[in-house]
Design a protein around this nucleic acid. Structure first.
Lengths: 192, 192
DNA sequence: CGATACATGTAACCGGTTACATGATTTT
DNA sequence: AAAATCATGTAACCGGTTACATGTATCG
């Protein structure tokens, strides 16, 4: 009886990171402040409330690593429900709207896809490629139609947008080829 | 005595569009719903309050196009202050933080840069290129350092991010070349 | 012992989302 | 006259930002 949860990027990032490795809010802050995940907020005003709300939903649980301390370090780990919710989120199909509104969330989902296995990762990349190709085509047509009305700068800005999606598509196809080769070994090679 | 205003992407988009062509809230909604500006919200709950707040700040002014109507169409246009604030915003230098946190805002600024002239547009693209090259370098180094600790999927997701910035840089350099050629004609060619 | 990093938390604020409400105008 | 579209608006909600508050552990 799992209900579908709409995760904000930050919450999904937190859930995924905690699922990979139990850790404290402060650990998360360090990650967000010093890695390519830096597009997420590392401010306490964002992270601690997010942790509380995930805990309230029963998806993660925080345990003090030192009972005696007055202000113990709270290490969070995923619950069974949390694992299930994460899996459910990662298995969602890639939609047109994901592309336009939440590309960051898409990449986040992919980044955590390791434990679902290569079949899921390949499915995701296939769907992403299809949607991307479709959207690029739409944008190109729109460009043709509106080209005459655009200023030089706005046309260039538009082209930058399309160029970006083309890059994303090339990446997705390359990644797909990479994974397909690995696939012949039967799964991700975790001994590397 | 202009004070520096921090525009949300939506507000900057509205101010810029209204500066290019006076229009109503409904016109803006149509634009956001049907063009590549579609990454902005076209919901009334976002646009009408944003218009009111820009008007309250004295940057735009709405005038009824039909006095007799009980519910007239409100056509907004920029005030002198609004023009100045927009110019000020577009002239800001491109920072590292813009890149990481507000890339959409950067492209928006560029899209409206027509009226400032090519020198400004060229300056913007130069700064952007510098910052991009710098950031890409940083990311590549970070990738080298952390490669071993990443899962296959998260490494790929990371690479997608870098690849995206590389695409942006290629675009910026190409646009720069394009503008530099035009520049020899002394300005944007608006008779095209 | 003072400084710095570790670690968690809260409150006011702001802006976008969602959903609802209202009425005018145009089309069929 | 009904339906669709035009057009503006509001209220509850949610989540991130900013700034502040508090206390612990470690290091020189």
């Amino acid at each position: 009886m799992e209900k579908d949860i709409n995760f904000s990027p930050l919450r999904l990032a937190i859930l995924g990171l905690v699922a990979m490795q139990p850790q404290s809010g402060y650990d998360l802050r360090k990650t967000f402040a010093s890695t390519p995940m830096g597009n997420f907020s590392s401010s306490p005003g964002a992270i601690y409330p997010a942790l509380k709300s995930l805990e309230k939903k029963g998806l993660i649980r925080g345990e003090a690593d030192n009972e005696t301390s007055l202000r113990p370090r709270l290490v969070y780990s995923t619950t069974v429900d949390g694992e299930a919710a994460l899996k459910l989120e990662l298995e969602k199909t890639v939609t047109h709207k994901d592309l336009i509104w939440h590309y960051d969330l898409l990449m986040l989902r992919f980044a955590f896809m390791e434990k679902l296995g290569q079949f899921e990762a390949v499915r995701f990349l296939s769907e992403l490629s299809t949607e991307l190709a479709d959207y690029i085509h739409q944008l190109e047509e729109l460009m043709e139609q509106t080209r005459a009305q655009l200023t030089v700068c706005s046309r260039l800005a538009f082209e930058q947008g399309i160029e970006g999606y083309r890059g994303n598509l090339r990446w997705a196809r390359r990644a797909l080829r990479g994974l397909s080769q690995q696939k012949q070994n039967g799964g991700f090679d975790h001994d590397n």
